[in-house]
Design a protein around this nucleic acid. Structure first.
Length: 194
DNA sequence: ACGCTGATGAAG
DNA sequence: TTCATCAGCGTT
């Protein structure tokens, strides 16, 4: 079942941690693609220098100030998209960046999007969606998906009963940012550890 | 370690 | 209008 609004309307660090193991799916033309979330990062409020909302509300960051449970999709480095889930209360800009998934559905479709073929090597299979830009490419998420409602629209997150122990979660500082590096706001599900 | 690529927002 | 910056990726 889809995660309810109340799941997202909580402390962003808690949401980021609990999103690990949830199934993130995109329905396109009746077919579903996606997988289990394995890596997340929290971006919290105007006081977080790495948060896009740190310079106040702009056309781009407007969605971050809105209702939780919506998607924030932005275009980065001239060629990639990243997807975030809005958290916390209305008016408080915070979100969780989805950095990686373990594919469960529509693997052939995702392989075709990433590599142009379904005939891929084991190495390529591992790399289909193990990065924020890669997973958006694989799941065909783009700017048209910005502001979508995760409770109703074609993007959705589902509780599939995955149990993840504390030992399986690596907590580190965030990746690819110049400021706010000291904050341990990145969560990685290390499936092989227990 | 680097080049690719274009939106974004601040400055002028 | 120009400019620096950028929550990434693939190849070297």
């Amino acid at each position: 079942m889809r995660l309810p609004l109340l799941f997202y309307q909580r402390d962003t660090l808690l949401v980021a941690r609990e999103l690990l193991g949830k199934e993130f799916l995109h329905t396109i033309g009746g077919k579903r693609v996606g997988g289990l979330i394995t890596e997340t990062e929290a971006y919290i409020g105007v006081d977080d220098p790495a948060c896009h909302a740190a310079r106040g509300m702009t056309p781009r960051t407007e969605v971050m100030f809105g209702r939780a449970g919506h998607a924030y999709v932005y275009f980065i480095y001239g060629m990639y998209h990243c997807v975030n889930f809005i958290t916390e209360r209305d008016g408080f800009p915070a979100a969780v960046l989805i950095r990686a998934i373990a594919p469960t559905r529509g693997v052939d479709l995702m392989a075709r999007r990433r590599y142009g073929t379904t005939q891929i090597t084991q190495k390529q299979k591992k790399n289909i969606a193990n990065g924020p830009g890669k997973l958006c490419m694989a799941m065909d998420i783009h700017r048209g998906d910005n502001k979508k409602d995760l409770l109703k629209d074609s993007l959705g997150v589902y509780d599939v009963g995955t149990k993840i122990s504390k030992k399986e979660v690596l907590v580190t500082s965030r990746i690819g940012i110049a400021v706010g590096r000291d904050l341990p706001w990145r969560f990685v599900w290390q499936k092989d550890k227990h």
